[in-house]
Design a protein around this nucleic acid. Structure first.
Lengths: 66, 66
DNA sequence: ACTTTTTGTCAAATATACTTTACTTTTAGT
DNA sequence: ACTAAAAGTAAAGTATATTTGACAAAAAGT
């Protein structure tokens, strides 16, 4: 699964730390998700979608292997 | 977080086992998610959304405590 | 009532999300 | 070049998602 977090963050002009705070997780969690090391739970992806103003499907995209 | 899986399954006339198979997980996983015992990963909720033909936000809804 | 399908549940094992703390590297601003 | 902010990374610990196998309860079909 790939994601567009970096771009969406840029659009909203948010740092990883700021996004983390708004989503209620740590900065490292956001960093790892952005890099693809972690797959977030659905609760977290819904929160990120809410904060970033985009549907989950625009933030996270399934890939071949998934 | 609450979910509408049971209703969506009914609309598509799918058993838990059938939905599980289409999503590539076990029947127990679907059962636990439906009952609220498990929060699925984003990969799984995207797959469920795909199979059920509804956006993630319609299948899973954030609640107060989340 | 009987049988079959579907759903609920449990326990043990494995994988991985998330936290905390801390340090390094990169980027941006002056 | 210097400084500060932002992003990347890592290890250890905790929590929880998912699997497997198996059985009980409930629902549906005949």
């Amino acid at each position: 699964m790939k994601n567009t977090l970096k771009v969406q963050r840029a659009i909203k002009n948010l740092t990883q730390a700021e996004l983390a705070e708004k989503a209620g997780v740590t900065r490292q969690t956001i960093n790892y998700i952005e890099i693809g090391k972690y797959i977030p739970t659905t609760v977290l992806s819904l929160k990120l979608a809410k904060v970033l103003g985009k549907p989950v499907e625009e933030l996270f995209i399934l890939e071949k292997g998934d």
